[in-house]
Write a protein that binds this DNA or RNA. Structure first.
Lengths: 222, 222
DNA sequence: ATTATTATGAAGATACTACTGATCGAAGAC
DNA sequence: GTCTTCGATCAGTAGTATCTTCATAATAAT
């Protein structure tokens, strides 16, 4: 998601930015009210995080002006003021949500996911990513620099296990039991076949990620 | 707004109802989890206020099940638990907002206004459109670049579900339960037949939209 | 060099989906 | 009352995608 962060406390700002980027959001930071409004009005973001107390123009006014100009990007207000009427005022100015400082990043993250679901652009929980690839579980869609394609059920399931344990060596028997079930009546050689299939898929999307063989043990995603 | 209130504390319940009705909302009250889910699944409300602790089925589960079935009505969770991870869990289950008991009615009211603005843009309930097609629910009329035509009841209902969740993968069982009802005595193969019918309809109006099959999972409108 | 292990390719078996035609019942026409 | 039409349902067949197995080639370890 493209996120605009308007906040003047620079240490909080950098911390938030760092965490958001770790969750694969694209973050633009702005520390000033007037400038923030300019960016806001470009209407190029999926979400705006807006501090209430800002230099040159306070957050409520920024929000109000943006709404007056017809910009409807979802907004989460961030503020030190936690009293009832402050919250109500914020919501009535057109904020979609409200977060009181100091807040845990976890909560911000959950509220972003919630808003994301609502605007439909972002379906977390079912999305894995590692290095230059990402995988959408429900669709079984693998995307990489070279495009995206659909995996079969087994292929997807196998890749999922690797994405859940990136960089770790996964023994063959572990993979077998995770993908086929612990007591499935299946030949071990079937795993070889599917490792082969998944490797082919990774090549097809031109990913730099590879399934490395650890002879005598298993494989790892690298 | 039509509001569904699922809450077992009867005094809080009546008070909230009274206040909501004073603000000209139409309120349905339910004090039981299972029954609440039934009403929720009818998909006939603009907003659901959902208590977390409920008889027969807890609020989180109600919400989760409803979302799994593709019902996207906005939800505000109401609860006595105010701790961080309770809030996060609620939001991640698909809640749009969270209110901690005891709450001021003023705040609930503000949050309802906030949500109301957001859904206020969905102006017409009876007209759906996506890509190059549009569908009028009451007339059951599908229009596309190649003209328009009437759908049968089932065809229309099925198409509606897709238009409400454009681009999303809808599992076969979800489609069955949303179009035929959750426990209808109907063969699953019937769904195949109607998918076929709707596809034929889409072709007839020369739409570029297609129902893509995701093998082993379901279909999506693309 | 020999052996154990893994990679690859091809082909048969299986499971899932697409489509067609038949049956049944309800609503309206005659 | 009978006939016609239409929609809903089901069953069966054809068509594919996916899964599995097996045979053989390639590679690494001893």
């Amino acid at each position: 998601m493209k996120i605009l962060l308007i906040e003047d406390d620079s240490s909080l700002c950098e911390m938030t930015r760092f965490q958001l980027e770790r969750e694969h959001h694209e973050v633009t930071v702005c520390t000033d009210g007037r400038d923030g409004l300019e960016l806001f009005l470009q209407d190029a973001y999926d979400l705006v995080l807006l501090d209430r107390k800002l230099p040159t123009m306070n957050g409520l006014l920024v929000l109000k002006k943006a709404r007056e100009r017809g910009v409807r990007t979802p907004v989460i207000m961030i503020t030190a003021l936690g009293e009832l009427y402050d919250r109500i005022e914020g919501l009535d100015c057109g904020a979609d949500d409200y977060l009181v400082k100091p807040f845990e990043f976890e909560e911000l993250s959950a509220r972003i996911r919630s808003l994301g679901r609502r605007i439909g652009s972002y379906d977390d929980d079912n999305r894995f990513s590692y290095a230059d690839i990402s995988y959408e579980k429900l669709l079984r869609e693998l995307s990489g620099p070279g495009g995206s394609l659909q995996l079969s059920g087994r292929e997807g399931h196998l890749l999922e296990v690797f994405l859940q344990n990136p960089g770790k060596v996964l023994p063959r028997l572990v993979l077998l039991s995770r993908v086929w079930g612990s007591d499935a009546p299946v030949e071990e050689s079937n795993l070889d076949t599917y490792i082969h299939f998944v490797r082919k898929r990774l090549k097809q999307v031109k990913s730099t990620a590879v399934l490395e063989t650890v002879r005598g043990v298993g494989y790892r995603l690298q």
